[in-house]
């Protein structure tokens, strides 16, 4: 049985670009090996943290959406804990609403990347507003 999961981890900012890439690929390989199927991947890059973690005020965020066996999550999380480069991580099981939301979010992002979104997005927003007004 497989479930959908979403995992976000934060790498220390002290690593060089190659080192961060290497750390990311390490976890991707781990996922592939451990019955995981990567569905989506997102790198948020360097971000400022809302509060300092291990005396660092910024971190490199990376998000992976994958499908795997529930038993694999434990292995993944122990691997996170063992790795010193990871300062924070979060793994979340996705329910159907979350999955559909993630897909919509991806479509929106793909649209913005193409440059068509500026046209598509305003078209969507007013429609929502119109729905609002009759109720109010």
């Amino acid at each position: 049985m497989t479930n959908r999961y979403e995992t976000v981890f934060i790498l220390t900012p002290v690593l060089s670009e190659d080192q961060t890439k290497e750390a990311v690929t390490k976890f991707k390989d781990l996922l592939k090996k451990g019955s995981g199927k990567i569905r989506h991947e997102e790198s948020w890059g360097m971000r400022k943290l809302a509060y300092p973690i291990q005396k660092k005020s910024s971190g490199f965020y990376h998000l992976i959406e994958f499908e795997s066996d529930p038993a694999f999550i434990d292995k993944l999380e122990t691997e996170y804990r063992r790795d010193e480069r990871i300062i924070r991580f979060l793994t979340v099981a996705m329910d159907k609403h979350h999955v559909s939301f993630a897909e919509r979010r991806r479509d929106r992002k793909a649209a913005t990347a193409d440059g068509e979104a500026p046209a598509a997005k305003p078209a969507r927003a007013p429609r929502k507003k119109k729905e609002e007004t009759p109720n109010a």
């Binding site: 934060i10 943290l49 809302a50 924070r88 979060l90 979340v92």
Partner: peptide, 13 residues
């Protein structure tokens, strides 16, 4: 709470 854990939001501010 998840957002706070990932330092996207502060616990206290």
């Amino acid at each position: 709470k998840r957002s706070r854990h990932l330092a996207l939001m502060p616990y206290v501010a």
